[in-house]
Amino acid sequence: MTEQRESTESVASLPEPDGGVPVTGKRGPLLEARDLHVEFASRGRRARAVDGVNLAVGEGEIVALVGESGCGKTTLARTLLGLERPTSGSVLYGGEPLAYSSHALKAYRREVQLVLQDPTGSLNPRHTVYEAVAEGPRIHGMSDEHDRVVSALARTGLRPPERFLNSYPHELSGGQRQRVVIAGALALDPRLLVADEPVASLDASVRGEILALLLRLRDELGLSALVVTHDLGLAWNIADRVAVMYLGRIVESGPVEQVLKAPTHPYTQALLSVLPDSPSPVVLSGEPPDPTRVPGGCRFHPRCQVLASGEAARAGVDGLCGSQPLMVLPAAPSSAGSHVACHYAGVRPG
């Protein structure tokens, strides 16, 4: 029996708080991963970079995908963009499976745009702002190129846009460069942005401005976004829902306030404990395991502070933690509340 079909009683489903943001409309999620697996050859073995993931992003919704470096979140994002082919499972856009022909991917990437974390690396230093933003409309043969460039720059707060058209990246601040990158995506009128660590390379003074911009674009244009980050503080400030990823799996997901105010999975608790206002940081032992050697049972158990402290043993689930696989979590629309893949969470009181 496959891992994702086992031990369904060990996955806790928590009630939803009032005011949750709906994930699915009448037509279902805008972008969805269904039982997604992505494997790579590594030293004669198979690295399970994405190892059974269900994830949905609804119309006008911002979902944060969080986890440590190496957990698989960037590979998942690249697969959702069609830059990687899944080993198994599927990516659906508007309810239809993603096609991988050149023509289909070109049309898809007009509507689902990538925003990278390093604006300096994303922009060609020899191209002006106009050329950078116009690249997408040119690729797609749009006749109203100039109007699209000017409109996109204005939407990102680079006003008046004419002031920036002939500037080069080195003449701009880091925040302005990131706005140019976002404008390049907006020039195609996308429905969804995939933002990979969109403020990681920026000074603290401008991070809030870029996050506020993404929220404003959601409110004004109805844009959806998947924000990939290691920063739960960022997720708190921008996301409607959060999905916490560890070693290729989503281990906890749900409405952001529910997950981050009352985290249930020990891994989520550890990630939150390093925030400045946390009373007691949790120090995890060791590094994330090699994805070619995924531990048996709960994949987090070799580093789990609940298991190490004896709490899991007192709850009578320590044997399960090291031996009984956990199921793949559902995509977790907000109507279903939060989900967590944890033996201890399913039995602990309260």
Results as ranks from 00 to 15, higher is better:
Ser173Lys: 07
Ile182Lys: 02
Tyr246Cys: 13
Cys321Lys: 05
Gly121Gln: 07
Glu96Ser: 15
Tyr344Glu: 11
Glu9Gly: 14
Lys73Ile: 04
Asp318Ile: 13
Pro125Cys: 00
Val180His: 07
Ala195Gly: 13
Arg348Leu: 07
Asp219Phe: 06
Val21Met: 14
Val11Tyr: 02
Ala341Ser: 11
Glu3Arg: 11
His37Val: 15
Gly121Asn: 01
Asn166Trp: 10
Leu215Phe: 05
Ala132Gln: 11
Tyr168Gln: 00
Pro22Tyr: 09
Val149His: 00
His37Thr: 09
Ala204Phe: 07
Thr8Lys: 15
Ser173Cys: 12
Lys73Met: 07
Leu226Glu: 01
Pro302Ser: 04
His339Ser: 13
Asp118Arg: 09
Pro160Asn: 06
Leu186Ile: 13
Gly286Thr: 07
Ser273Tyr: 10
Leu221Thr: 13
Gly19Ala: 10
Arg299Val: 05
His343Lys: 08
Ser143Thr: 15
Tyr108Met: 14
Val38Lys: 01
Val50Trp: 09
Cys298Ser: 00
Leu83Cys: 10
Met142Asp: 12
Arg27Gln: 14
Ser173Thr: 12
Cys298Asp: 02
Ala33Lys: 03
Leu65Cys: 02
Gly316Lys: 00
Pro255Ala: 06
Pro295Val: 06
Pro169Arg: 00
Gly58Leu: 13
Arg46Ala: 09
Glu171Ile: 04
Val194His: 02
Leu320Lys: 12
